[in-house]
Amino acid sequence: MNIFRFAADLLHVFAIATLLLKIWNTRSCAGISGKSQILFGLVYVTRYLDLFTTYVSLYNSVMKVFFVVTSAVAIFLIYVQYKKTYEHDLDLFRIELLLLPCAMLSLVINHEDIVLEVLWTFSTYLESVAIIPQLFMVKKSGGIEKFMIRYLIAFGSYRAIYLINWAYRYIMESHYDLIAIFAGILQTIIYILGFFLLRGVKVVVSDKEEEP
């Protein structure tokens, strides 16, 4: 593993921690798109089914479990524990508009026509667009809290740095995965477009956020 990938993974963990700590500290999931979190949950579950079939390293396994578990926790906090604070009236993006194209594309363009491989491909395509409901929610509410800015920057940088990792691996190891690279480029573009979409959105400070 090279430094780019490790740095990217740390940013990925940081993004998730930012989200969970915000919900935990303020006992509120205001401003967070439950739909994006459901999509990320699907991403992790469909991608990390290989926990049962392929062992890469202890690091990989621990991280995979971390992503699946924290994503389940986020969904639980939003839809059960702090359900009353979930702003479902602002979370209106139709996720089937993302799920169906990703499902169809993964059936057509994949490395191999076997279940695990199609699910991995679906997961990779879905990850690239999973943030869209969150971006629309921020746009619709017209305000964004600082934790959400940190979350979006960390999550966007994570895949952008993976692109550097893939360039590095191509040069050093002649290794590349066109599906991952294509989806990673799309994902990075979506975050960049997202920041353009959200320019002009007011940065708001929530009542409970100003704690040390």
Binding site: R5, H12, R47, K64, F67, H175, D177
Partner: peptide
């Protein structure tokens, strides 16, 4: 070359 199905990343 492309190592098909080598998913060693996250």
């Amino acid at each position: 070359a492309q190592d098909e199905n080598l998913h060693d990343e996250l």
